[in-house]
Amino acid sequence: MDRLLHLDRSLDELDPPRWNAPAPEATHLVRKVHKLRAKPLGELHPADLHNLISQQVALPYVLPLAVRLLLDEPLLDAYFYDGDLLLAVVETPATAWTTMPDIAHQVRALIASLPQTALSDLPCGSAEKLSRFTTQPDGGTAPSAATARTGL
């Protein structure tokens, strides 16, 4: 299924079950992610995609959107710094890429095309994260306690 055909629909519609309203004491991030799930995919901004990807929410729907943006601007500053969306994408668990090997291949090719000078402007450790993604057979990173997200 081409997930980009559903740009007029929200994650609540496409990624059941629909989430209940966040608890009154929920953090700002939890409330934000809940709100983003109700937004049509076509209205999600790069920062929205960064938040959803970083929290590992509906990855089969948001990763293709992010990669589409990255193909046009690989070091897009989505939220914090140049390249932050690309780094969020490559830090997703390897299991997220098993149903999207073609998109993982696009990301690997994109990383391979980046000039070394561009990598030097990224935060410390970024080159290693990009390299780790390109060496994974199906893309992504091995799940770890540091990348696991809970509470959403």
Rank of each mutant, 00 (worst) to 15 (best):
P93T: 13
L69K: 15
H34D: 00
Y79M: 13
L44N: 01
G42E: 02
Q56N: 14
A38R: 06
G83F: 06
E43G: 03
D48N: 12
D84M: 04
L49S: 12
A47K: 14
L52G: 08
L36V: 05
P101C: 09
T92C: 01
D82F: 05
T99M: 14
G42S: 01
D84A: 07
L52T: 13
A58S: 15
E91G: 02
A96P: 00
P64G: 09
F80M: 09
A66L: 13
L49G: 10
L52A: 11
E73F: 05
H34P: 00
P93Y: 02
H50M: 11
F80N: 13
D72N: 09
H105W: 13
A96M: 05
D77I: 07
A38Q: 09
L65N: 08
A94W: 06
V57Q: 13
H45V: 12
V62I: 15
A38G: 07
H34N: 00
P40G: 07
L86R: 09
A47T: 14
L49M: 13
V89F: 00
L85S: 13
H45S: 10
T95Y: 06
D102R: 12
L49E: 00
M100A: 03
L87E: 06
T92K: 00
R68A: 05
L75T: 08
A104K: 04
E43L: 08
P60R: 15
D82N: 10
L69N: 09
G83S: 08
P64S: 13
A66C: 13
L49N: 11
K39M: 06
P46S: 11
Q106Y: 04
V90C: 05
E73T: 10
L70R: 12
F80L: 09
A66N: 09
R68S: 04
G42F: 01
A38T: 07
L70H: 06
A58N: 10
H50A: 14
L75I: 07
Y81H: 12
T99C: 12
L49V: 14
P101E: 12
V67I: 15
M100N: 00
A88V: 11
Q56D: 13
L36Q: 02
A94G: 04
T92Q: 01
A58H: 14
G83C: 04
L63D: 01
A78F: 06
V62S: 09
A104S: 08
A38F: 01
E43C: 05
E91L: 01
L69A: 10
L71C: 08
W97H: 05
L70C: 09
H45M: 12
D82H: 08
P60C: 11
L59C: 07
D82K: 10
A96V: 08
A66G: 09
H105R: 11
L76A: 05
L85W: 03
K35Y: 01
D82W: 02
W97E: 01
L59G: 03
P74K: 11
T92H: 00
P40C: 03
L52I: 14
L85G: 07
R68W: 07
A96F: 02
L69D: 00
A38M: 02
M100P: 00
D77S: 10
F80S: 12
D72S: 10
F80I: 14
